[in-house]
Design a protein around this nucleic acid. Structure first.
Lengths: 213, 213
DNA sequence: CCAGAATGGATAGTCAAGCTCTCCGTTATG
DNA sequence: CATAACGGAGAGCTTGACTATCCATTCTGG
């Protein structure tokens, strides 16, 4: 297929496809002459993946590039998923030294309680988590951080389902890509369900009516 | 306190504070003369809140503005939290008509199974969730959508903790602000815990080693 | 009380991200 | 063979979030 069809098939404008090619997000098509190329269904799939990561996952194109490079590379699935998590987390906001210290300690406790192994080169995931906890403390949100243990236990339950989803993928071909998609979309989907559930639960518990501030 | 101190206290540069004032994100200080103003600790708190929403919550300033307006308004807490959820969700990406249709039906099933009340003016939260599910389908991630029920049940458990956190806030003054913070930070914190847990669980279940794609 | 620093306010400039537009010489196609 | 489409490269555009520069006051330390 050629440009126009690739564009139509994927829903991405021609100019944008060209841009992605320039940026190296989309591999070049197979040459049929010095200045003509032909694209495959894999290109359509790749475009859909890019759009899913940006539109649904909210990743900047640079992160998408890093993720795609990891997918295409021959790293282990474990390392590839590590890259995905780093990019999903993004650069951690900076917080005060002391709050970060405190948050790290809190997190350490939870990690120990749950018998998790401390992953040592502390990546963006942990830095982000620490920053979020530190921010909660700085804003006086003690109630939130007190419940960290409960959240952690539920996070394990969710992660068990996540791993089940990925483990169930025996479809050979691009297991890694599927894992990436599951991780990125899984985040959004769970967040959405949680928001819906918050509304339900708060209606039940608080009865819907509460004094005005 | 005056500008310089406000800036030092909050860690936000003077130029940026002025910008937030212009944009109406920060209320003007109390005038002491036609062209001098004095700021209160409430301004420091407000600045911290703005930074938390942008840096940790990832909200654009326009959304922060909407949230702050809601907090300052005299809507019910329920409505205010609705605004927060809308802004957290952001504009939903567009997906194909048919995939959206399918995703809506799937979501309807889950809603019914869990006995949730369908919240009718379908807001950005639901549109986003539907879009994420539709994208999963378009990318052939059936395993993910099959488990939606399990995720929903866990989401309820998480939401129960969330509501507990907010309900435990009897501290009178700015319960709504606390609820907002809990929601926004809660999202990030849970996502981080989930990522950590994924690593733990996948190490246990998959044993850390897996063939290279 | 007065010189120099700081303040509030307004306007313009900057920078990155993510496209979008325009050309242009080449290639496919009815 | 005329004309439409293609690929490639460059410049331009828009939005978001600041940052820098002025300037006419106002505060402050000696």
């Amino acid at each position: 297929m050629r440009m126009a069809e690739l564009s139509a098939e994927s829903g991405v404008p021609v100019a944008t496809v060209k841009y992605y090619l320039r940026e190296g997000l989309l591999p070049p098509g197979e040459r049929t002459s010095p200045n003509q190329a032909r694209y495959s269904p894999a290109h359509v799939q790749r475009l859909r993946l890019i759009r899913a990561l940006t539109d649904v996952g909210g990743l900047p194109l640079a992160s998408v590039g890093a993720v795609l490079t990891a997918i295409d590379g021959d790293e282990t699935p474990h390392r590839t998923m590590g890259v995905v998590q780093e990019e999903l987390a993004g650069p951690p906001p900076k917080v005060s030294e002391e709050a970060a210290e405190w948050a790290s300690a809190l997190l350490q406790d939870v990690v120990r309680e749950n018998g998790w192994k401390w992953h040592e080169p502390r990546g963006a995931t942990i830095d982000n988590l620490v920053a979020a906890l530190a921010t909660a403390k700085e804003l006086g949100q003690d109630k939130l951080t007190e419940r960290l243990g409960e959240y952690a236990r539920l996070a394990v339950r969710v992660a068990e389902v996540d791993v089940g989803v990925v483990a169930g993928l025996t479809s050979v071909d691009n297991i890694i890509e599927a894992g990436v998609v599951a991780t990125v979309l899984g985040d959004r989907i769970f967040a959405g369900l949680r928001h819906l559930a918050q509304e339900q639960v708060s209606r039940e518990v608080l009865g819907g009516a509460s004094p005005k501030r």
